[in-house]
């Protein structure tokens, strides 16, 4: 999907977005409220014609909403009051002649099984949101745009919904654009990011660096690891050869996974020490030490080829005599590691 848009919203308010998402790419759409995320999603889905510029998909100009391969889940779930849940999902599948999808399994995973004969007019906000999501997935379209589509879901349902969206993308090869004020769905589902700031959009290849840099005062690092096995009630993941322990997530499987760590939660040590409590300990090399405006030192570490950022006080920095290229150990508690899903 390529787009090069100058869309005039009001006389002195023009949204300028240019970019390209490759087929099957999963993109987090970031920006403050009112930045134009919903407008961009409406433009990309062909519901809103741009005042200037164009959107193309697979080299073909993006047609009207009903002609293209993009489906959008609205911020406020739109329910057709004359449908039952089963009817409305069947309506979503009506024009899908390509993909056979496990809709009944997904209904079950989202606790909607018992509601299939319920009128869509009688659903609660959270139920409507889950139905709207499944109805959109039933279309089998090549791009799924989610505009705050998880906002009314509790954490367990959110996780299940994210899993289903990930399943959908695996089965159909579809791409994803997720706007969400919660970060969890974006961290679970997305690879890259598109940021809209002061009406101008820009692409960021790594969703985590985009998300991490948005958390004020807290710098986060995301590490790509391999989930291994349960040990002492914790999940052991591997970063290269080093083991790392995380609180056991509700769902996990062996294989690639992502975890994030806040820079303030890591401490640095030199030399081997014996730990009494369950502490993660990674061998690292200092890439750079930089003082920050808030009187703390930002230390960038290389851990198995990945970047881990650590904030320490100048006093610790001086006491340990840290310098660039030095070998150290990064230590942090199990609870400091956030599980950010598997793709």
């Amino acid at each position: 999907m390529q787009f090069d848009i100058r869309h005039t919203i009001t006389a002195n308010n023009t949204l300028i977005c240019r970019g390209e998402f490759s087929p099957g790419e999963k993109v987090a759409l970031l920006g403050n409220s009112g930045a134009g995320k919903t407008t961009l999603l409406r433009l990309l889905s062909g519901l809103l014609p741009s005042t200037q510029g164009a959107v193309t998909d697979a080299g073909v100009p993006m047609g009207h909403g009903w002609q293209n391969q993009v489906t959008l889940v609205h911020q406020q779930p739109v329910m057709f009051a004359h449908h039952t849940v089963a009817q409305t999902i069947a309506y979503g599948a009506k024009y899908n002649r390509v993909h056979a999808l496990p809709m009944s399994h997904w209904l079950q995973r989202l606790d909607l099984e018992a509601l299939t004969d319920t009128s869509c007019a009688k659903l609660s906000g959270g139920q409507a949101q889950r139905v709207a999501l499944l109805r959109a997935l039933a279309t089998g379209r090549r791009w799924v745009l989610l505009d705050e589509a998880f906002s009314a879901l509790d954490s367990a349902r959110l996780l299940a919904a994210c899993d289903i969206v990930a399943d959908y993308c695996r089965l159909t090869g579809a791409g994803l654009v997720v706007a969400s004020h919660q970060e969890a769905p974006q961290r679970f589902l997305c690879q890259s990011a598109y940021l809209i700031d002061e009406n101008v959009g820009r692409y960021e290849a790594n969703v985590f660096s985009a998300l991490n840099s948005r958390i004020e005062g807290q710098l986060w690092s995301t590490l790509y690891v391999t989930a291994d096995q349960i040990e002492h009630g914790f999940l052991r993941v591997c970063l290269g050869d080093d083991p790392l322990y995380v609180s056991q997530p509700e769902h996990w499987q062996e294989g690639h996974a992502r975890v994030s760590i806040a820079a303030g939660d890591v401490s640095l040590a030199i030399g081997v020490e014996h730990q009494t409590s369950m502490v993660n300990r990674l061998a690292a090399t200092i890439i750079e030490i930089r003082p920050r405006e808030d009187d703390r030192m930002l230390v960038s570490l290389d851990v198995g080829g990945q970047l881990l950022r650590v904030l320490i006080s100048p006093w610790s920095c001086a006491r340990l005599g840290l310098q660039q290229g030095q070998a150290v150990f990064a230590e942090f508690k199990v609870g400091a590691v956030q599980w950010h899903g598997q793709l």
Partner: peptide, 27 residues
């Protein structure tokens, strides 16, 4: 406009959206 838009995102043309969704809702 969201009713029509939601129908469009499911692949219904304006004509189908009118007969399948908007007219029944306008009963």
């Amino acid at each position: 406009r969201q009713i029509s838009e939601a129908a469009y995102t499911l692949g219904a043309s304006p004509w189908r959206a009118f007969w399948d969704i908007r007219l029944p809702l306008a009963l």
